[in-house]
Nucleic acid binder design. Structure first.
Lengths: 337, 337
DNA sequence: GTGAAAGCGCTAACAC
DNA sequence: GTGTTAGCGCTTTCAC
């Protein structure tokens, strides 16, 4: 930062005033063409660029978006980030990243820190803990301060803002229906997200699909995993208690792959005897053996749409009609179905 | 941003001057205790925080680090990011992320944009294309402008700055040696990074391990993959041409898992007949079947160290002795060895 | 066609 | 103990 050139220095070297130099750099009609040429030449020589902080202070716009995500090691969130970055860059915005690590405290603190004029608005997916404990004040407070928020994936119904979601209910319904159409008779569901809004929607879709096919969900076929340590034991128990299981729909891929491994060890032929569908088109699903059929959430689209919505609102702050965009999901068929 | 409270507004409401309010908020000894209490109460009521842009302009420090990484979907880079974020936050810094997508243009442009006073310095891993085409000017130019850089993983010898690397040579040497100690006789190496500095080091380590054991590297046992499409065919060819292969060391996990799959299909028993070691302790390796033994790079450590080095330098800009920190790697033993 | 001056929000040296 | 002033780098209105 030390040896960066400023307008003042340019002006001094040229024997002009700061304002003339400023105008010349903007090709103002007020300024003599020769002066413009001289100024721009020197600016180029020194690789001059207006200081972003000064500009922000002046225009009251940072051209920066704050992004708060629960977990950077999750492929879905990384891919959303890719989409956000892509769209933001295209429209001249930068992104500041904060990680909530699924903790309420960290989420609230990150947003508090960024809402000091560091960013123009926020894109976020709610931390697990925040959603469990139903905190919402920190969002509303920040919105009151004039920072627009766009939520994606894990959203809150009690916060008035733009949202981007997938239709979790339909996605689960479609995946389960597909298994039923395949002729599967006993389909389990494994979920790690049961306490989240999206988790409940997915469970609902699964239930509805069974009901619509005159089958009824047995709650014992819904395996809820609350802790990382429980994957193996919970899923193993499922297989032990239901030897005739022939379908699994998992709301995350660790569950799906764990089921695949256990089935494998127990001698099931996949997909002949057992069909498995996971959630999220990540590397793990593609590299699985056999490769895993999944519900794909179009993560990149979600990111692009979220960024687009936020920037649109930034350009038009008065508008109050908040939208919720639903991004279509697809099933990507691979070898486990 | 619109309804954010400023010092001026506080001062007006309190009937005080701006500077008094400013000092009161800092518990200055100059100010009357009662005044301090009054000021702080009102500031709290309005949730006042000093505007970051104004502060930056004043102090000529943004408390922000620019991070440029080649690929956000790569688990290693995500994990480094986690480490950077952790350390940076702890020390009061924010991070702005840019993705180079392994392209020189995007890398240079991102850095150009951020070096307008948006950040105090950079942490980056060089884009593949940049390294292939041996661009370095953009780094040196930015350093000249006064922005310190810390490079990690993919670094350049021709740029004077702090660096954080793993000992790629030793890591490959150790992994290969382990396979040899296991009694493996014919060990192939698969690499997707051959054009990168780190790729060459890893190949070197592999070669040395073989040489030290009185075996000699056959170049035909080194499979170089340049395109995503070639994974299957190249590795398949390797197995076809060397039926007696009993060890594989891969510099990335997609190669390792692909080898695992192909071996599986060809009826090899892993690890009995064939031992496989991958690179990077990512989800794919943990979820593989059987789970993949890997060289772990301590990605999080790398991130923390990089952030720490950068912030140290920011605090002490005059110092010129650039360091290169080498982070220890480990082999994480799983089921493929 | 060029320049002086005000002001974005803040801090700090220097009055009073 | 409190206030005035200058200045960080920039844009923009208004003089000249």
């Amino acid at each position: 930062m030390s040896n960066k050139i400023t307008l003042k220095q340019l002006a001094k070297e040229l024997g002009l005033s700061v304002s003339t130099v400023s105008k010349a750099l903007k090709n103002s009609y007020e300024i003599n063409e020769k002066t413009i040429a001289k100024v721009q030449a020197l600016a180029k020589k020194y690789n001059y660029r207006p200081n972003r902080m000064a500009l922000s202070l002046k225009t009251n716009a940072t051209m920066t978006i704050g992004v708060v995500i629960p977990n950077i090691l999750n492929y879905f969130f990384s891919k959303v980030l890719l989409g956000i970055e892509e769209e933001a860059n295209k429209r001249g915005y930068q992104i500041i990243i904060c990680l909530s690590n699924n903790q309420y405290q960290k989420e609230a603190e990150s947003m508090r820190l960024l809402s000091d004029g560091s960013v123009d608005g926020f894109i976020l997916s709610i931390a697990k803990e925040t959603q469990l404990q139903q905190h919402e004040d920190h969002f509303n407070k920040i919105i009151e301060e004039g920072y627009p928020i766009v939520m994606f994936d894990r959203v809150s119904d009690n916060v008035e803002c733009d949202k981007v979601v997938i239709n979790d209910f339909d996605a689960a319904y479609d995946a389960t229906s597909f298994l039923l159409k395949q002729g599967r008779k006993k389909i389990a569901m494994i979920t790690t997200l049961n306490d989240l809004g999206i988790g409940k929607l997915r469970t609902g879709g699964y239930r509805k699909a069974l009901a619509d096919n005159k089958k009824y969900a047995h709650d014992e076929l819904i395996v809820k995993i609350h802790d990382k340590k429980d994957f193996e034991t919970s899923i193993n128990k499922l297989f032990e208690e239901h030897k005739d299981l022939d379908g699994v729909f998992a709301t995350d891929n660790v569950s799906a792959i764990t089921a695949l491994k256990i089935a494998h060890n127990k001698g099931y032929k996949v997909p002949k005897q057992l069909s498995i569908i996971g959630f999220s088109d990540d590397k793990v699903s593609r590299m699985a053996f056999p490769s895993l059929t999944v519900v794909s959430q179009s993560a990149r689209e979600i990111g692009k749409e979220a960024a687009s919505m936020l920037i649109d609102r930034l350009k038009n702050p008065s508008s109050k009609n908040y939208k919720t965009t639903v991004i279509k999901t697809d099933v990507i068929f691979r070898e486990t179905t």
